[in-house]
Write a protein that binds this DNA or RNA. Structure first.
Length: 614
RNA sequence: CGGGGCGUAGCGCAGUCUGGUAGCGCACCUGGUUCGGGACCAGGGGGUCGGAGGUUCGAAUCCUCUCGCCCCGACCA
C-alpha cells in the first residue's frame, strides 16, 4: 500500500517564477518534476508513475502491430554521415567526442540505427513487412527550450519504423499506426485531432500530426465538427459569397482620386465599400532557402481580398520559393509599378529583361538589383502574379492604380488583368465553413503529441538497405516513421484540464494519473477514521485499484489542497460522516461530490474506473 | 543568433539607485494549543548575496569580465 507519509511528494505552495505555462507550474508544484537545466528535467516519483502509465498504454497498443527494440542513444558519426544528417540536422544534433577523439552524437531519432539493422539483416520480401519500435530518451539541442516539459532537450519518445516491399504495404503500415495512435490517445483520455501535415523537405507521400488544442501549443491548426482538420499552412475554407459592387460609368476601370487613402481601412471608409470588395496587393521578393548568395530572387505580387491575410508558407509553395521578404520601394516601382499603398494588378509592371536595366538611373538600391539580374541576364525577372481564389470570378473591385493617391474601380480579374496562377495563399479565419462539411472551423494553438509519416526510400537508399522482391529483383524497402512524445501526452492532459480551471487546478484521466484514487483521512488522530481509511484503501488495493492513502498527520485543508495538486481524479474523504457509515467521493473530473455507504465504495470506484477505460 | 528580463535560505520576495556586520512571508526543527479547505503562540536552524577580477578602510550594493535561467523573435526531420 502506498502511504503519503512514506512517499517523496514535494508539493509547493508557490510556483517558481521561471514557470510560465500552467502545466509547468503545476508539474513543479505537484512534485512531478524538478528542473536541472534549460530543457532538462528530473522526473520525481509522481511524474515517473504517470509517465510509466502512459508508456504502458503505448507499449500495449504498439505490441499489437510491432515489436519493441532498445537502441543506443550514443551513435557514431559515420552512421549519421551516411544519411546526411550529421550536418543536415545542423545544431539540433548533440555532438560529442570520446577519449580517442572519435566523434559521436546523441540520437534525436533512430532512423539510422533501425535502417542499419534492416540493411544488415533483411534480405527478402518474405521478411517484410516489419514494424519496429522503441520507447526511449531522445536528445535535441533545441535553440530555445521552453514551457516546461513542452519543448525540452531530453525527452522520452516512442518512435516506430516500418519496412515494406511496396507502396501498398506502406499504406497498410501507415494505416495500422493511425488506428493505433487513435486508440492510444483515446485511452490516455485526450481530446485530439489528426491534421494533414506538410511533408516538407522530406518529400514523403503523406504525413499527419496528432494535435491537442491548448494555448500553450506552438502550432496553429483548424478543425471542424465534420472531421476536417489541417495545419494553418494547409487549411482551406469555403467562402460565403460576397456581393460585388455595381459597375459605374461604362463599367471599365476608372481612375479615382483617393489622396492619403493608402490603407485598406481608409479606402473602404472613403469609398463606403467593404474590405471584401477591395483588392489587397502584397509584394515580396522570394528566394529559395539554402541559397544565401547568388540565388535569383523572384518578384511576387500576391493579390487577395482586402479582408484576407497572406499565408507565407502557402505562397512559398505556389511560387516555388522558401523565403520571402517585402519589396523595397525601388523594387515595388520596378516589379509592380507603383508606390506602397496604391499597388494594383491593372497595368502591373511585371519586371523587365536584364538588358533594359541599363537605362535606369544609378543608385545603391538599383545597383543591388542589377546584381540580382546578373544571375539571369537574358531572361531578367518577371513578376509572378498570384491570385487568391477569393478574388477569382469577382467583378467591379477596387484596387490601387499603381499611382500615388489614385485607385481604380470596376476592376474585374481576367478582363482587366491576368495572373500567372490562381492559388489559395491566404490564412483561413475562425468560423469560416470547412471545405468538406461546411461546419464552422475552429482555429487555435495546439501541441503536437504524435506524428506519422510516409518516409519512402530516403534512408533505405542513402544507407543501402535492399531486399529481393518476388521476382528476384533488388528493391529498396519503403519506410514509414511514427513518433509519439510521451511527456507531451502528460503535459497536454494537464494543459487541457487546467484550461478549464483558470490554470489553477487540473485532474488527470485515471489511465495516466499517478494514482487512480486517493483516500484522504481527514484526521488521523481519530482512531476510527484512521481504521476506516486503512480498510478502504486496503479493499481498493485488493480490488486492483491503484490507490494512495493520505495518512499524514496534517490538517484536512492541507490534505485536500495537496490531493488536488497531484491531479488524482477520484478522492475519498474519510471524515465526519463516518459516524453515519458514509464516506464522501469527490469526482474531480466532473467536479461532483457524493456520499456513499462504507461498504459500497469499492464497487462504485471499480465501476467508475471500468467506465473510464473505454 | 537578435531583443528584453532575472540570479539574495527549499519556494516567493525586499534590500542594490544613495557602499557601513543580510532581512520578510511560506516551508523546515522543538514545545504547546488547534483539527473538514494551505491554523495559532513561543523558541530555533538554515544564505561564500550565481562566479571571477577590480575600486575602496569597508562591496549584495560601484566597475569589468563571465556563467546560468526565463520571455519575445529567428529556428524547429
Amino acid at each position: 500500500m502506498q502511504r503519503w507519509s512514506k512517499l517523496f511528494i514535494p508539493t509547493l505552495r508557490e510556483a517558481p517564477t521561471d514557470a510560465e505555462v500552467a502545466s509547468h507550474k503545476l508539474l513543479l508544484r505537484a512534485g512531478y518534476i524538478r528542473q536541472l537545466g534549460a530543457g532538462i528535467y528530473s522526473y520525481l516519483p509522481l511524474g515517473q508513475r504517470s509517465l510509466n502509465k502512459i508508456i504502458a498504454i503505448v507499449r500495449e497498443e504498439m505490441n499489437k502491430i510491432g515489436q519493441e527494440f532498445l537502441l543506443p542513444a550514443l551513435n557514431p558519426r559515420e552512421l549519421w554521415e551516411e544519411s546526411g544528417r550529421w550536418t543536415g540536422m545542423g545544431q539540433n544534433l548533440f555532438h560529442l567526442q570520446d577519449r580517442k577523439g572519435a566523434e559521436l552524437c546523441l540520437a534525436m531519432t533512430h532512423e539510422e540505427v533501425m535502417t542499419s539493422i534492416a540493411r544488415n539483416e533483411l534480405r527478402s520480401y518474405k521478411q517484410l513487412p516489419q514494424i519496429w519500435y522503441q520507447i526511449q530518451t531522445k536528445f535535441r539541442d533545441e535553440p530555445r527550450p521552453k514551457a516546461g516539459l513542452l519543448r525540452v532537450r531530453q525527452f522520452t519518445m516512442k518512435d516506430a519504423y516500418s519496412f515494406d516491399v511496396d507502396q501498398a504495404g506502406l499504406d497498410e503500415s501507415y494505416r495500422k499506426h493511425y488506428d493505433t495512435y487513435v486508440r492510444i490517445f483515446k485511452r490516455c483520455g485526450l481530446e485530439f485531432v489528426a491534421v494533414d501535415a506538410d511533408s516538407g523537405a522530406m518529400g514523403g507521400s503523406g504525413s499527419q500530426e496528432f494535435m491537442v488544442y491548448t494555448d500553450a501549443g506552438e502550432d496553429l491548426i483548424a478543425s471542424s465538427a465534420s472531421g476536417y482538420a489541417a495545419n494553418l499552412e494547409k487549411a482551406t475554407s469555403k467562402l460565403s459569397p460576397v456581393e460585388d459592387l455595381a459597375p459605374t460609368g461604362d463599367g471599365l476601370p476608372e481612375l479615382i482620386h483617393t489622396p492619403g487613402q493608402g490603407a485598406i481601412a481608409d479606402i473602404c471608409a472613403f469609398l463606403n465599400i467593404l474590405p471584401s470588395q477591395d483588392i489587397k496587393c502584397v509584394a515580396f521578393m522570394g528566394s529559395r532557402t539554402g541559397h544565401p548568395e547568388g540565388e535569383p530572387l523572384r518578384p511576387i505580387a500576391a493579390f487577395l481580398r482586402g479582408d484576407h491575410q497572406v499565408n507565407e508558407t502557402k505562397l512559398n509553395a505556389v511560387a516555388g520559393t522558401g523565403e520571402l521578404r517585402p519589396m523595397t520601394p525601388e523594387e515595388l516601382e520596378l516589379f509592380i509599378g507603383g508606390p506602397a499603398g496604391y499597388l494594383g494588378p491593372v497595368g502591373i509592371a511585371q519586371g523587365m529583361s536584364g538588358g533594359s536595366l541599363n537605362g535606369l538611373k544609378s543608385g545603391k538600391p538599383l545597383d543591388r538589383l542589377k546584381g540580382v539580374f546578373r544571375e539571369n541576364p537574358t531572361e531578367g525577372l518577371r513578376t509572378i502574379i498570384v491570385l487568391d481564389p477569393g478574388l477569382d470570378g469577382r467583378t467591379n473591385l477596387v484596387a490601387g492604380a499603381n499611382k500615388l493617391d489614385y485607385h481604380l474601380r470596376n476592376v474585374t480579374p481576367g478582363r482587366d488583368f491576368t495572373s500567372t496562377v490562381v492559388a489559395d495563399i491566404r490564412n483561413i479565419n475562425e468560423g469560416e465553413p470547412d471545405p468538406i462539411g461546411g461546419e464552422p472551423l475552429r482555429l487555435g494553438k495546439a501541441v503536437e503529441i504524435g506524428h506519422i509519416f510516409k518516409l519512402g526510400t530516403k534512408y533505405s537508399e542513402s544507407m543501402g538497405a535492399r531486399v529481393l522482391d518476388a521476382n528476384g529483383k533488388e528493391v529498396l524497402p519503403i519506410m514509414g516513421c511514427y513518433g509519439i512524445g510521451i511527456e507531451r501526452i502528460l503535459t497536454a492532459a494537464i494543459e487541457s484540464s487546467a484550461a478549464a480551471n483558470a490554470g489553477e487546478q487540473y485532474a488527470l484521466p485515471a489511465a495516466i494519473a499517478p494514482f487512480e484514487v486517493i483516500v484522504t483521512i481527514t484526521n488521523v488522530r481519530e482512531a476510527d477514521l484512521l481504521a476506516a481509511g486503512e480498510k478502504i484503501a486496503a479493499d481498493l488495493e485488493a480490488a486492483g485499484v491503484d490507490v494512495l492513502l493520505d495518512d499524514r498527520d496534517e490538517r484536512a485543508g492541507v490534505k485536500f489542497k495537496d490531493a488536488e495538486l497531484i491531479g488524482v481524479p477520484y478522492r475519498i474523504n474519510i471524515g465526519k460522516k463516518l459516524a453515519e457509515g458514509q464516506v464522501e467521493l469527490v469526482d474531480r473530473l466532473t467536479q461532483t461530490t457524493t456520499d456513499l455507504p462504507l461498504d459500497a465504495i469499492t464497487a462504485h470506484i471499480q465501476s467508475l474506473l471500468a467506465a473510464s477505460k473505454l
